[in-house]
Amino acid sequence: MGFLVPILIGVLFAAGVYCLMRRSIMKLVIGVMLISQGANLLVFASGGLLAGSPPLVPADGQEPVAPFGDPLPQAMVLTAIVISFGLTAFVLTLVHEAHEAVGDDDTDAFRSTDT
């Protein structure tokens, strides 16, 4: 199973970048979401993937039995998931408002501040 995770990370990044290149602003949001999921998965996998080895200290011991899964990436990825959840909510609102104001979801209609 372990070999699937890097492939999945790659697919998420590729799909995300593809969506960012499209012209619909809704696809921008989807693209950013996919990329941040890819990054989250990468952080999660960075501590090494070990099935069925929780970092728990047995009742009669001082430290967890090796090998155990690294808990730190899991803590970090939780933080990152919460952050990306909040940002996604914000971006969805922003896209909605921008769509109302511009009246179009084609990124070509969003160029009035560029030049």
Binding site: I35, S36, G38, L42, A45, L72, P73, V91
Partner: peptide
């Protein structure tokens, strides 16, 4: 947001 995702990936790789 895109740049944040890249930063997070780099942090993951470094860890």
């Amino acid at each position: 947001l895109f740049s944040s995702a890249l930063f997070l990936s780099a942090a993951g790789i470094l860890y």
